[in-house]
Structure formats: structure tokens, C-alpha cells
Design a protein around this nucleic acid. Structure first.
Lengths: 207, 207
DNA sequence: TATTTATTTAATAGACTTATTAATACAACG
DNA sequence: CGTTGTATTAATAAGTCTATTAAATAAATA
């Protein structure tokens, strides 16, 4: 496990902990186990991170940010047509999920463990999506008025987009097992559902 | 907690355990805590159910069955048009989720804890969906050929349906918190998304 | 080199967990 | 009434988990 010649212990612990927390969640991962995988003494975990909670929150906060900032940083889209923009947003979001397939489950599981955490995190996300929403809404209304998109509320559209993208990744551990998918097949499914989701949404928006 | 004058202890334990497992998951619920909520001695849990694992699996299996049988028992639909049938399936599924909003999270969380469990459960679900799928596929193909539905694979349609229905309930704990929804508002959202999902899907299927 | 500082370990306290066992209360029944 | 079987409890073994402390080692610095 530890051919981490050059890497600092502190960093190695963080990485191992991240992997284990993502795999098995907070409750099912012990500092003892992290230490064993790192190949160090268990006290060292506490030396660097004081408490298990703290270690977890360091990781969690980082993942949370990665994730939500990834969703909202949709600048430099400029003046492309609305539906193209939508396609781009769906695909970016899907790509983000593909790169971080286990973050959603982590967030959903652990936020119900410590719901207060949400308020702390809400503040730290000053990347206010309001602006983005407002602009998208303006464009959507314009498309509807011009008869290029059927009548639909932005919030409903966004929930549907989010649902279609997110669900596959949340269900993946079960799907994988149930259908006995190997890595290749899993990859094919993921790639396929990306285009499928875009098509499904755009087709639904036709006037 | 226990004005369970007439109910047997064995049953009370099961019900309290069910509630706690659904609320907080397997790892975060101790037999000590279950006993405390039931108002009995902790040894009694083990007297009736031997191990915590066993108690959990009794509950889990039952929920798993409730859930998947609920999905697949779509008899007596008879000769109604394909799109009506689809609407009915989506709505039934959504109603099932509304009645059991926490089961999906339970299944997703705990199946990754003990993946072997899936094989056991797979066998017990002899309600083979193959027949249903075959029939649905026949009807879908017919609709496509007759130009009443755009070209789409059944499996993709089903995944999209499942995703749209499931995602809201899985995200609900976070959504609820993030938007500070009270029970009423939550109910409104859930009701609204039911019709929205049906519309979103049917609109997408237009040729 | 000597001394301070940072890293790492061994040992362990203290809390909690699951599970078992033996003892007790309670019921039914002959 | 006394006996038998079930339901329930108290006590506790054995293990794990987090966190702390003091000692040992390694690194840095003067």
C-alpha cells in the first residue's frame, strides 16, 4: 500500500481516508482501518487530524465544493443558442459525475447524518447560482414565447436534468451487481446514458 | 413510546427497529438504542432475533420485496393504449415511492455494505419481469412503427422513468434541508413532481 | 555537536457495541 | 398448589472504537 516514498504522511492519510470514506461511508470506516491501510500507527491519524469527524469533514467539504462549484461554474458560454447551452450544461454535469461517481452517495448519506453541516456548507458556497438561474430563465421564457420550446418551468426542467444525470450514478453499485457488469460494460452504459439523457431532455422540450 | 398494550414485544421491536434502520441506517443504529426506544432490555432484542444482522435482514428482505413486487405487479392493465399504460406504470411507481420514501436509500446504502445479499434476494424475486418487459417491448415497437412514439429502446425509456421517479426521493433529505421545506411544502413538491414526471416523459416520447 | 522541534509509536483509558448466561418474574396447566 | 415453559432482566464477557499520553525516533537548527 505504501510505496509513498516522497509523499507526506499527512497527505497519504488524507488520500486513504478519502478512498475508504467514499467506499464505505463514515460510520463503517474506522481510524484503525485507515491507519492499517496507510501503514502507520493509528495515533498518527489523530496527530494530524485530531478527530475522525474533523478528518472526515476536511474531505467532505472539499468534495462538496468540487462538486457544486463544478455544477455552477458555467461561465464563458456566451451567446450560443439556448438548447445548445442546455446540452452543454447536461453534458458538463454528467462528465463531472463520471469523474466523481461516488460523491453524490457520499453527500446524500452523510448529510443526513449531520444535517447542521449543510448550513455551514451553504455559506461557503458563495458561488450564487441565482445569477445563472435568472439568465437561464430569461432565455427559457424567450424560447417558450417564440415557440421553440414547450411551456415548462425552469425549476422543473432543472430537477429533471439533475434527476436523470444523478440517478444512474447513485444506482450504479446496485445495477453493477444486479446485471453483473464488468468495468468495460459499465463504461459503455455510462457513455450511452450521457447521450440518451441529452436526447431525452431535448426531445421533451420540443413545442 | 410503548403504549403497546396489546402488541407483542417481538412485533414492537421489529417496528421500532424498522423505523430506526430507515432513519439512520444499519451502522448508526445500535441494539441498545432500539431497546431503549422500545422500552425493554437490550438482551430481549437478541432473545427474539439472535443477532443485529439477522434483525436487519428480516426487515430489509421484507422492504426489498414490498418494493420490487410493487414495481412488477402490473397485472389487470388489459387492453388500454400504450401511453396510458406507461402513465399508469409511472404513477404507480411514484405512489409506491411516496408511500415508502426511505426504502430506496436503505437499499442503496445497505446493499453496498453486504453485496452478497443481492444474490440471495435476486432468487427470492421470482416475479420475473421478463414477461412484462417482453410485452411492453412488443407494444412499444408497434407504437414506433405506427409513428405514435419516437424511436427509443425500452431499456432506455425504463431507466429514464426510474431515474426521474427515484431521484427526488433519494435527494429529498438534502432538498428538504437546503430549501427549508416544511411537511406541507414537501407534500406539494412531491405531488407536483408526479404530474411533472409523467408529462416530461410523455412529451419526450412524441414522434 | 548539542538542543530543540517535529514525527511516529506503544500503551492504554474510557466509552460503547454485540452477544451470552444465569437468574427472576410471569404465565399456563396438571 | 406446584411445576413447567416462556418472557424479561441484570450482569458481564469480549471486542472494537476514538482519543490521549508519554516515550522513542528522526529531523532541523543553532
Amino acid at each position: 500500500m505504501d510505496i509513498n516514498n516522497e509523499q507526506s504522511m499527512e497527505q497519504t492519510i488524507l488520500e486513504v481516508a478519502e478512498r475508504l470514506f467514499l467506499e464505505k461511508g463514515f460510520a463503517m470506516t474506522s481510524t484503525t482501518e485507515i491507519a492499517k491501510e496507510v501503514g502507520c500507527n493509528q495515533a498518527l491519524i489523530h496527530y494530524y487530524y485530531r478527530t475522525k469527524d474533523n478528518l472526515f469533514n476536511v474531505i467532505f467539504e472539499q468534495k462538496f465544493k468540487t462538486f457544486f462549484q463544478g455544477i455552477f461554474e458555467l461561465q464563458n458560454l456566451g451567446e450560443i443558442p439556448f438548447l445548445d447551452k442546455l446540452k452543454y450544461i447536461i453534458e458538463s454535469h454528467y462528465d463531472l459525475l463520471t469523474k466523481n461517481p461516488k460523491i453524490p452517495s457520499l453527500i446524500l448519506n452523510e448529510l443526513s447524518r449531520q444535517p447542521e453541516q449543510l448550513n455551514t456548507l451553504k455559506d461557503k458556497l458563495h458561488t450564487l447560482p441565482e445569477q445563472l438561474f435568472a439568465e437561464l430563465n430569461r432565455e427559457l421564457q424567450s424560447e417558450i414565447e417564440n415557440g421553440r420550446v414547450r411551456n415548462i418551468a425552469l425549476v422543473d426542467l432543472l430537477i429533471s436534468m439533475l434527476s436523470l444525470n444523478l440517478a444512474l450514478f447513485i444506482m450504479m453499485p446496485v445495477v453493477e451487481n444486479l446485471l453483473s457488469l464488468n468495468e468495460t460494460q459499465k463504461g459503455i452504459l455510462i457513455t450511452h446514458r450521457k447521450t440518451e439523457n441529452v436526447e431525452f431532455i431535448l426531445k421533451s422540450l420540443r413545442p
